[in-house]
Design a protein around this nucleic acid. Structure first.
Lengths: 104, 104
DNA sequence: GCGGTACGTAACCAATCGGGTACATTAAAC
DNA sequence: GTTTAATGTACCCGATTGGTTACGTACCGC
């Protein structure tokens, strides 16, 4: 969980995930799609891999990266504890509007 | 969105959110529950506030922080694009694995 | 007023991060 | 075996982070 949220904090890494949603891609392809040089992308990919968000397979000299969306289930589960709260809050808000009241 | 994920990357800040799930708390209370000194907590609270994850109200000398779980809806929405993917993956693991195609 | 309490902010510092360039490595092609 | 392509790693460097202590500020009780 920690590693996943850490990985998601960086915009470049989130872009990589977005790109991989369209299908697997090589490190070079990903680097070309980003505004940073290849070694930088390589390090981002390492972080994503260690967080379990992508997996890699070797294909000749290329390393093909694939999205592992299951890793995001951790985040989904973490959110679960808050979902009830924000739903309750939105409900309460609607109720207050309906009744014309305010709290606190 | 960016600010929210940035805020969530730090474990101390996530702990603050967890604490606030039990109800509003003063900055001092939160600091006492964390292994870091009050000024550090103050800065964490600032980050959380600027991300919209908490809100403050003044009560005499104390500043009472309240969770704003709605801010997490952003993350929930961001996850949405991936949810379909991981469900599909879990659902049809055996059939989809054979997919080795890609475009150049 | 004056002192104490509860904060936030400023200044500082060590550590980490995210970028770059240069080099190492691996596999294919010849 | 030498060359070329693809990619990771090592190293450096400036910026940011997360923690500290010291200080400033607002509020209450006296």
């Amino acid at each position: 969980m920690d590693a996943v949220l850490q990985a998601l904090a960086d915009p470049s890494r989130r872009t990589v995930l977005t790109l991989l949603r369209d299908g697997p891609a090589s490190a070079g392809d990903l680097a070309q799609a980003l505004p940073i040089a290849r070694p930088g992308v390589s390090r981002h990919l390492r972080v994503l891999r260690e967080a379990g968000l992508v997996e890699v397979r070797q294909e000749a000299q290329r390393r093909i990266y694939t999205l592992r969306p299951e890793a995001l289930v951790e985040v989904d589960d973490w959110l679960e504890d808050y979902r009830a709260l924000w739903r309750h809050r939105l409900d309460a808000l609607h109720t207050e509007i309906a009744r014309g009241k305010r709290t606190t």
